[in-house]
Design a protein around this nucleic acid. Sequence first.
DNA 1: AATCCACTTGCAACAGAGTTGCAAAATATT
DNA 2: AATATTTTGCAACTCTGTTGCAAGTGGATT
Lengths: 136, 136
Amino acid sequence: MDQLRETLKGHQLRTTTCREDVLSTFITKKNALSHGDLEGALGENYDRVTIYRTLKTFLEKGIIHKVLDDEGLRYALCSHSCSEEKHQHDHIHFKCSECGETNCIENLHIPAVQLPMGYQAQNFNLLIQGTCPKCS
Amino acid sequence: MDQLRETLKGHQLRTTTCREDVLSTFITKKNALSHGDLEGALGENYDRVTIYRTLKTFLEKGIIHKVLDDEGLRYALCSHSCSEEKHQHDHIHFKCSECGETNCIENLHIPAVQLPMGYQAQNFNLLIQGTCPKCS
DNA sequence: AATCCACTTGCAACAGAGTTGCAAAATATT
DNA sequence: AATATTTTGCAACTCTGTTGCAAGTGGATT
């Protein structure tokens, strides 16, 4: 529980109960979470707006990153400690069509892609859909 | 202009002016379009709701597919004729951070990825962000 | 532990995106 | 031209996300 305070302090953030609870939710559930998921988990305790603002702050500080699939926007913890300046920008996410969960796949590189002339790539985001180990 | 009617008929759709105009917009502008883009282009002529429903219909019939980036949802024409049953599911999209346009990159395969044990992939969606030929 | 300032929260109100029900209009078929 | 079926426009609504502001809290200082 003190680890939470450490993480927040490490990103120059005041420790508030909402931030601790949101961060802790991301850590215990390991999959990507939408605002709605968090509202479901903590909604009694905090205002909708506060959760939105917490997510925005965590994004800016590099604690979480956006995850997109055709159902909408989710967030997941950044694996290697990202900071405000330095972000790890290549992500692979796996969305299970059975259980609907989306997870980051760590320790896996996106293979190089030969882009046509003139395109300059900055970052890559791969979304794989299929069946996860739990559901197959 | 008659090609539009052919395409619609080919997907068992009645030809209406709205559908023709939406389809024609996708063909002339070649990049991915959001509902807002279409509303901007044709908004005087058709109701918001009608454009939403047209997009939904086109999606179901496999005429267009979803394209996602962190700014939201867009749609783009399916390259090889997709049908209601058979969809080409691997897509590479390039989003230019300068001009904001998102385009499908055709004729380019996503290299194989070694997924951890237990994961079964069905389709791949790669979003590359960077600078496009026009802007570099 | 009391004070202070800056930051954070809750509330209300708003803006935008997307959906649904229903009556009127348009399409394709005979 | 008449018909059944599909599509459209309108109104109303839901869901997601944002903004301004006053009240409350965190944490550094004394």
